Computed example of a mutant assay.
Amino acid sequence: MRFASFFFLLGALTFVSCATSSTPSNNDSMNAAPQAVIAAFADAIATNDAAALEAILHPNFTVIIPRYPTADKNSVLDRDTYIQLIGSKKIGGERYTVTYDQTTVIDYNANLMVTFDGPNTIMQATFLLTEVSEGDWQIVVDYPILRNK
């Protein structure tokens, strides 16, 4: 129930933000900061740098992995669990080439669709970020689709 409430609130905030903003940004300068956070995220997971994740993951960060570990289940990880798994090298450790397929910034919210291409895995992920203070962006949601090569 708590999880559903979180996404209802996130959806409502996104709706309000979209309703009050004039247009989404396709401006490279506005896209740069959220994209830099995703680049830092990719580096942190490649090097299993849990400390680096602490700064870029929002306190309410959630990762939702559909159809994992089996086709009939989804994995949902909170921030602390995700950071622990990265730090203990149970996940991560693969360097990716990052491609920003789509970046939309509306006021203090950003939605990025990103492809991570690694030696063993391709991830297509949707990220939701928020600007917690001027120029300080954090990842709130990571929704990856994992594929083996």
Rank of each mutant, 00 (worst) to 15 (best):
F6N: 01
I38Y: 07
Y96A: 11
Y143R: 09
N27P: 05
C18D: 06
F3G: 04
E54F: 08
K73P: 02
Y82G: 03
T115P: 08
D72A: 09
Q102P: 05
A32H: 07
A51T: 14
L13C: 09
I45A: 09
N120F: 12
R67Y: 04
Y96K: 10
F7I: 03
A42R: 00
T99N: 14
D49F: 15
A19T: 03
L13H: 02
S88I: 06
P69M: 05
G118Q: 15
I106M: 14
A46V: 06
M123D: 11
Y68Q: 06
L9N: 13
S75P: 07
N111Q: 14
P69G: 15
N111V: 11
K149I: 09
G93W: 10
M1T: 11
T47G: 09
E131D: 03
L77H: 04
D43V: 12
T62D: 06
N27I: 02
V140T: 02
N109S: 10
N48C: 06
I56A: 15
A71Q: 10
F127Q: 08
E131F: 13
S29F: 04
G135K: 04
L9D: 15
E131V: 10
K90L: 15
L112C: 04
S88N: 09
Y108M: 12
T130C: 12
I122E: 14
Y108E: 15
A39T: 11
V141K: 05
E54H: 13
P66M: 10
F3R: 14
